[in-house]
């Protein structure tokens, strides 16, 4: 019994402490977080653009259809259909081994793949958020003579953003976990490091369980922060 425990401790020692291996996990986690944050921002920008185009298209007044807007709208639909209709794993493999096969900056390739994927989901979240804002708000903006984009930018989007903050938090968590898929194209994030150490020690159990615990800890911390932020926002509504 005691011997068994000692054996496991030894395995973990070998996977984490020996040769300062913990530094590899740390650098992997750093890259994981970097990819998450940059891809999230990238995806959000993409999502807002797509959502505004699609909403603007749907809100056009009859008899005043704009051809350019119809083309953009068709492109946006195509984009969300393809991204949401294919597995993320396959998308990342295509980015890494087909489109950017010769690129050596695999982290960047991963960010592009994750960001473009996230944008398609963020677009739907943002679109829902835009629709959740009372139409009286945009009517008031337009009745003052503000144009469509200014009304969106100063009035509707800020209010929509507040409404969708919880969904965006969830998107952050999803994206954070999905970065692990990028190990397949060789970006040196947390899962990649765990796999490498596992391979070197011929023992995958300690590094994989360890990395799972690291992911879990970060998600728990983030969920807690998110809850706090939401309570704060709800209070500011009640003042």
């Amino acid at each position: 019994m005691l011997e068994g425990l000692m054996g496991i401790a030894g395995k973990f020692y070998k996977a984490f402490i020996e040769g300062e291996r913990w530094k590899l996990y740390l650098s992997g986690l750093g890259i994981t977080l970097e990819m998450t944050v940059v891809a999230l921002i990238f995806g959000m920008v993409l999502g807002v653009v797509v959502a505004v185009i699609r909403t603007a298209h749907d809100q056009q007044r009859p008899g005043r259809r704009n051809i350019l807007l119809s083309i953009l709208n068709a492109l946006c639909k195509l984009y969300t259909t393809i991204i949401r209709g294919t597995p993320m794993m396959v998308q990342i493999l295509i980015w890494g081994f087909v489109i950017f096969a010769s690129s050596r900056d695999k982290v960047m390739v991963g960010i592009i793949g994750l960001g473009i994927n996230s944008g398609a989901y963020a677009a739907e979240i943002v679109r829902g958020g835009l629709m959740s804002v009372d139409v009286g708000q945009s009517e008031a903006g337009r009745s003052l003579g503000l144009n469509y984009l200014d009304t969106m930018r100063f009035i509707v989007i800020p209010q929509a953003f507040k409404n969708i903050l919880p969904s965006l938090g969830n998107e952050f968590i999803t994206l954070f976990k999905d970065t692990s898929l990028v190990n397949t194209i060789g970006a040196a994030e947390l899962t990649y490091q765990a796999m490498r150490i596992g391979g070197r020690n011929y023992d995958y159990m300690p590094p994989l369980i360890g990395s799972a615990l690291i992911y879990l800890a970060i998600v728990i911390i983030f969920t807690w922060l998110q809850g706090k932020l939401e309570r704060r926002l709800r209070q500011s509504d009640r003042r």
Binding site: Q137, A140, L144, G145, K162
Partner: peptide, 28 residues
């Protein structure tokens, strides 16, 4: 947009912008 700038409208439910101060509501 130009025409609406010359026609003020007041709504039953006020439709002030909740994300801005009163001053910004007026000056935007």
């Amino acid at each position: 947009d130009k025409i609406r700038q010359q026609m003020g409208m007041v709504f039953q439910h006020f439709n002030l912008f909740p994300n801005m101060t009163i001053r910004r509501n007026i000056t935007l």
